[in-house]
């Protein structure tokens, strides 16, 4: 298509994307705007949302140590999940990439397929495994460690989050490893490099962008996960997501819930959008 035929067809992109655009304006942009407004509205314990303009919800969140404790807990749980995903998912992706033909795709599927099973099912499976009489505690007892309370503690939440997030780490690392020619490793070994040097000088630089984008994805998703902390953390172990859930559906303090939800959105967007910036930086350093 040349420019002459393009010019009178300005309406074509709009016509093609119009229906999707309209739906997303109505169901994404408008609700987010309404929620931003809601977070500045007054809340009365008996009369509910009253309108007006106030920073009360934000002041309440920022001024109360109770909320800071929940933010802090959510932060370190998400961070620990991310670190564990790097330590498990990185090596696993590398091992997968070194497997032979049929096994490689079989095990890649085994690692990725849980992605398609409902997160509620996976959380329930972990509650069976980590419960007071679960298989893990039976194994601990048999080993002489004794029973450990894991359910409704950060242990269960982190274990289940790692299980849910691991595919999001394996996929980008796997993708960056696909671009690595195995002959480069062989050449380095033939030239006298030790496996340690090959790992540090060839493999790690190749997978760093993958590890980085996987980490940001895992951190953002973990920080906003609801079903896992809801089912495995219980009421006592509140995280930001379960706090928002309670404010909306139990306390009915929607302005407060909206303020926390917006804070979560801003943190998430900052983390996710920095992916591109960081990745571009990483590539530029390697190319330059």
């Amino acid at each position: 298509m040349n420019d002459a035929s393009n010019a009178p067809r300005r309406w074509v992109p709009l016509a093609l994307s119009g229906p999707a655009l309209a739906l997303f304006a109505l169901m994404v942009l408008l609700p987010l705007g309404l929620t931003a407004l809601l977070s500045f509205q007054q809340f009365h314990p008996e009369r509910g949302v009253e309108g007006g303009f106030t920073l009360a919800a934000y002041a309440q969140v920022l001024g109360d140590a109770y909320y800071w404790e929940i933010f802090g807990r959510t932060g370190w749980v998400a961070l620990l999940t991310t670190v564990l995903c790097v330590l498990i998912g990185g090596p696993e992706a590398y091992i997968l990439s070194r497997m032979r033909r049929p096994w490689r795709s079989v095990f890649l599927l085994v690692i990725l397929a849980p992605l398609l099973v409902s997160v509620v099912v996976r959380a329930f499976g972990w509650s069976l495994l980590l419960g007071p009489n679960g298989l893990v505690n039976q194994a601990f007892e048999w080993l002489g460690i004794g029973r450990v309370r894991m359910l409704y503690t950060p242990i269960a939440v982190v274990v289940a989050l790692v299980h849910v997030m691991l595919p999001f780490m394996v996929i980008p690392v796997w993708t960056s490893l696909q671009k690595l020619d195995p002959m480069v490793e062989n050449a380095a070994l033939a030239a006298g490099a030790t496996p340690g040097i090959v790992m540090r000088r060839i493999v790690l630089p190749q997978v760093t962008p993958g590890l980085l984008s996987g980490s940001l994805m895992v951190f953002a998703l973990s920080a906003s996960a609801l079903a896992i902390p809801g089912l495995l953390g219980g009421r006592r172990l509140k995280m930001v997501a379960t706090l928002i859930y309670d404010e909306y559906l139990h306390e009915l303090n929607w302005p407060l819930g909206a303020a926390i939800a917006l804070a979560l959105l801003v943190v998430n967007l900052a983390v996710m959008l920095s992916t591109n910036a960081l990745l571009e930086g990483a590539y530029r350093r390697r190319m330059g």
Binding site: T35, L38, S224, I244, A261, L262, L264, L265, L273
Partner: peptide, 24 residues
Amino acid sequence: ALNGLLMSPLIVPHLVLGVAILRL
């Protein structure tokens, strides 16, 4: 911008979408 908007549900946490749509 169009691509970004149509892909945004992957970046905006479903939790936030949920409470936002509940308000609507």
